Simulated assay, not measured.
Amino acid sequence: MVERRPLWTFFTHAVLLLGLVVTIFPIYVALVASSHDTTTLIAGVPMTFGTHFFDNYARVILEGTAAPGAAPVGPMLINSAVMALGIAVGKIVISILSAFAVVYFRFPLRMVCFWLIFATLMLPVEVRILPTYEVIADLSMLNTHVGLIVPLIASATATFLFRQFFMTVPNELVEAARIDGAGPLRFFKDVLLPLSRTNMAALFVILFLYGWNQYLWPLLVTTDESMYTIVMGIKRMIAVGDDVVEWNLAMAAAILAMLPPVAVVVIMQRLFVKGLVEVEK
């Protein structure tokens, strides 16, 4: 029986509402700022919506701003989506195959290979960025989607998580698949992939956000405006030197940059939660 404590319930709800306000208020300010003109925002951000909402969004999507290098946001959103999807799908595919090989195949130095993969957690992109850039440049992958995606698709964390999950799969399933005449690939496709659905969904959300928010690597490998990502674009909109920053357009770009990750989280929320908290498969 759950004991009811009105005072404690009120306190917890008050804390939740306070956290919600702290989280939502900056987004509300950005949304309001994106509906005004630049002149209005110089004096301060009003708390009510203006009349330039659709004009600002149409301009930032199709034309960009007057800041140097501030290209239209439309192509940037496409580049960011391609990069995020490529990184998320690539990491999941490579990691699940790597974990499958480590768990279900016996070959020399099997665990050495796994721990070498796991040791790369200590080498983030920032540490190996110079040799990685040199390889991409030598392969003529600068200013390409392949150059944005390939160096970031290996994931020791995802490999470790899939390995730990595969080790919990009962051996009876493996034996039953062998009795039915299923080979390794059929066992992987018909048994392991369905069981890993929630894990893949949870990892997809996390890895999509990781790829979408990348800034340093796209900054290095892209010099063509047509290959800019949305995170780079927002930075260039506010780096104008002595000129007046068009905060209304920058805030509009920020709101647009937030929509795809929010949509991914909302659409996959149920599978994402299951993948994080579900114990029995």
Rank of each mutant, 00 (worst) to 15 (best):
V265P: 02
T9H: 09
A101C: 09
G183P: 10
L31I: 11
N213Q: 10
L219Q: 14
A70M: 00
A58R: 12
S98A: 13
T222L: 06
G90E: 12
R163V: 14
M258I: 02
M47Q: 09
R106Q: 10
I61V: 08
I153W: 00
I96C: 10
K235I: 05
A119T: 09
L249P: 02
M141S: 01
V174R: 12
V265K: 01
P46V: 10
N143V: 03
E225C: 02
G86S: 05
L219M: 09
F166V: 04
Y133E: 12
F54Y: 13
Q214T: 14
G86H: 06
V146N: 02
P72N: 05
E3W: 09
A88T: 07
E126N: 09
A182D: 08
M83S: 13
I234P: 06
P124W: 07
L209W: 06
E3M: 10
P194R: 12
G211L: 09
A101M: 10
L161D: 02
A14C: 08
M232L: 15
F188C: 05
F11H: 07
I61F: 15
G233S: 14
P26S: 06
K189R: 13
R128K: 13
G275T: 02
T51A: 10
F160Y: 13
E172I: 09
I179A: 12
Q269T: 02
V22D: 04
D242I: 08
F162R: 03
I129Q: 07
F11K: 12
V45I: 15
G90N: 15
V32Q: 09
T157N: 09
Y215H: 08
I92T: 08
V205E: 14
T198L: 12
V22A: 15
T168C: 04
G44M: 14
I42D: 06
R186T: 10
T48L: 11
V191H: 10
A176R: 05
E280P: 00
I78R: 10
M141D: 02
V191M: 13
A14S: 15
A254G: 07
G19I: 12
I238G: 01
T132D: 13
P68S: 00
L85A: 15
L109K: 07
W8G: 03
H145G: 00
P151Y: 00
V262K: 00
G275Y: 03
P218I: 07
V127R: 06
N248W: 04
W8R: 11
